[in-house]
Design a protein around this nucleic acid. Structure first.
Length: 260
DNA sequence: AATTAATCCAACCGCAATACG
DNA sequence: ACGTATTGCGGTTGGATTAAT
């Protein structure tokens, strides 16, 4: 038995939002809030949209403090760092970037950042075993950012892990060469909590569990056979994560991801 | 100037998790 | 405890725009 659809698709408007629809939705939510129910919201607002569509429009475009436009070098670094450690959890990654939405981050990664990293890495002409995110980032800047992990450990059974890492850089940058300073300290604590403090902002969040893909991340010390295909941009998510994390220590799970 | 290819990004879709009766 | 409704998320699609030929 399948699920009942969230709305009557035949009578629901689809496609791009008009300025009038935007204004209606924005005005209503600012006045009354969502009422805790997106499904019934369109009717109240007077829109023929699906509730999910309204929610997405609000979250990705209409809500206050949404930031559009170019990503900064600091944001690039945070995305790379988090992608390497938690994979494509765009909502978590976006939560670390003020004003960015998961959709934004996802699009940016898929269309630009991934390619930049891969092409950067390709131009480095290093042996696969020598490639780390650190080296990629270092290669992109004159004054190298430094990354380090300390006291990391990982426990399989209950999904918890502990550890911390810090990074800092002066000048920068991953892509543009614009000057900036960034520093951050992050720590993994107790029951898979991940707390960050940095000079961009402070965000706390909790991982509920760690999945298999991340287990590979923490323990990966395996072969990189097949990683370097004919097309430098033709990688899957796993390959990219592996690429970023390649050179993980083979002796223990400490110091994973970043070299000293 | 016209056509084609590549890129970007808003929006949709379906699934899993969560809330609720 | 169970079934249904709703929410949140990540993957994918498709139209608009830009670049190349």
């Amino acid at each position: 038995m399948g699920r009942s659809p969230c709305c009557d698709k035949a009578s629901v408007k689809k496609g791009p939002w008009s300025p009038e629809e935007d204004a209606k939705l924005k005005e209503y939510i600012e006045k009354h809030g969502t009422g805790g129910n997106w499904i019934t919201l369109p009717k109240k607002v007077g829109l023929t949209r699906c509730g999910k569509s309204c929610r997405l429009r609000w979250l990705n475009y209409l809500r206050p403090n949404i930031k559009h436009g170019e990503f900064t070098d600091s944001e690039d670094k945070i995305i790379c760092t988090l992608f390497a450690s938690i994979g494509s959890r765009w909502s978590i990654i976006a939560s670390k970037l003020q004003g960015r939405t998961d959709n934004d981050v996802k699009n940016y990664w898929n269309t630009k950042l991934k390619k930049k990293i891969m092409s950067m890495n390709h131009s480095v002409e290093m042996k696969p075993q020598q490639v780390t995110l650190s080296s990629i980032l270092q290669n992109s800047t004159k004054s190298s950012p430094s990354f380090s992990f300390t006291d990391s450990s990982y426990h399989h059974s209950n999904g918890s892990f502990t550890g911390s890492f810090s990074y800092s850089s002066t000048s920068s940058s991953l892509l543009s060469g614009n000057s900036s300073t960034s520093a951050a300290q992050e720590s993994f604590i107790g029951d898979a909590s991940f707390v960050q403090q940095n000079n961009i902002g402070s965000v706390n969040y909790i991982y509920s569990e760690v999945e298999d893909s991340e287990k590979l991340m923490f323990s990966n010390a395996g072969s990189v056979n097949g990683l370097w295909g004919e097309n430098p941009l033709d990688y899957g998510i796993d390959e990219i994560k592996q690429l970023i994390s390649t050179n993980t220590s083979t002796s223990s799970c400490n110091n994973f991801l970043f070299d000293d």
